[in-house]
Design a protein around this nucleic acid. Sequence first.
DNA 1: CGTAGACTTGAGGCTCGTCAATTGCCGTGG
DNA 2: CCACGGCAATTGACGAGCCTCAAGTCTACG
Lengths: 238, 238
Amino acid sequence: MRRLANFAAFSPECAKPIQELFGRFRSIARGRDILKNGDDADEIFVLLRGWAARYLVLPSGERQITEFLLPGDVFPIPVGPIGKMDHAIGALTTCHVVSTPAKVFNDRVLHDPKMAKAFWWITIADKGVLRAWVVNVGARSGYSRIAHMFCELAARLEMVGLSDGSSFAFPLTQQDVSDAQGLTSVHINRMVQQLRANDLIEWRDKRVTILDREGLRQVAEFDPAYLNPGGRPPQTST
Amino acid sequence: MRRLANFAAFSPECAKPIQELFGRFRSIARGRDILKNGDDADEIFVLLRGWAARYLVLPSGERQITEFLLPGDVFPIPVGPIGKMDHAIGALTTCHVVSTPAKVFNDRVLHDPKMAKAFWWITIADKGVLRAWVVNVGARSGYSRIAHMFCELAARLEMVGLSDGSSFAFPLTQQDVSDAQGLTSVHINRMVQQLRANDLIEWRDKRVTILDREGLRQVAEFDPAYLNPGGRPPQTST
DNA sequence: CGTAGACTTGAGGCTCGTCAATTGCCGTGG
DNA sequence: CCACGGCAATTGACGAGCCTCAAGTCTACG
């Protein structure tokens, strides 16, 4: 709900029918897949609680994460005929999700042009995040990659009310981070220690605190513009 | 047209009004930007001829390409209020484009739910390409990255009729390739020579020939599934 | 025929990977 | 209550992939 509100005029009355639509609740343990590579994408999920990720594992056994899914995210976004997943979506922590059949979602939600537009907009915003991810992995050093990831996650978590501005719960392991950034966990560890030594962040007990927001932003070369493609401020409108 | 046809039931009669819509023709020289970072995205383009790319330049001066735009591609895909570009789109070769104001495009094309859905679908397909790009840059060696790029481009070019199956015009410089793959042109050069030495590809005079399709596919770990998210075969339907 | 851009080649160095061992923190079971 | 096992974080030594700098070759083009 909160995420949708960023993308469409959205009244509380709209919320109820959607909440009723997603009738099926499920809890997924950490490490389990919510959707496997090759599955039919015939069910639409909303992540209520926990962190998940889209990823692919290569023949070499290496896992590359391409997108973090945070509470409020909807997946997979369906359009046209039901296809098969070309990647997997796995739970990085214990996840709570609700779901509805894709067909129902199509008929009841996407049938409304306004809603369809809101979800399309989300797709475009996600594409922006993905572009930033490519830039990160392709052009930045390990040190600033990690800084960038923290900047982005802090901003995204704040949008859904999961950050108090400078500190947020961060349940991932260094192995997860390394799979996302295309580095080894050993190297992640060393770079994180460097960020700590430079008093940019604190990370302990599954919680990250940004100590020097401006300093981190500079190291990361972070510009949050891409998170809000329409230029719309992240606030609820009626 | 050809690209749209892959994503929606599409009759020739539909084509005419769209062709008339994009009234403004322009030719852009190689190296010039079609849209600069920060520009208003108030005009919608269709690339008729030439290659272009979405890219970002970092403070360090490094350029990271995040997406290749081939003939038939539409950009920027607009939704909601007109925003500012958070990246640039530049011509990698001389490009021919036609365009129309975003407002007109919205009213005349996206107003039709069927059309809107087709463009949304394109957005989702592009997101798949971008995911593959992240995997490529994040998890593969320079050698297989380049192999993967050739596999993908061969497949995409074939979809729009610009490849004869194993050979296609490839107008990019090694510098362009390096900006896309997050490597230096020196290293690209060495890896390309290795691909040549292994009789996988030929690349001369702005033309690439795939000599050993299966061998290249294995090196690249290429699975074309992501290019057609709906599972629909790449053919025109009425 | 001269110049510029693209491609090619070589030597040396840094970032990051690999392998391996150690520490600390739990949750479990004796 | 303590021993044990497992997972995550940490550290070190060494090696490889890729970068940097620099020079040289080839081709297109004026």
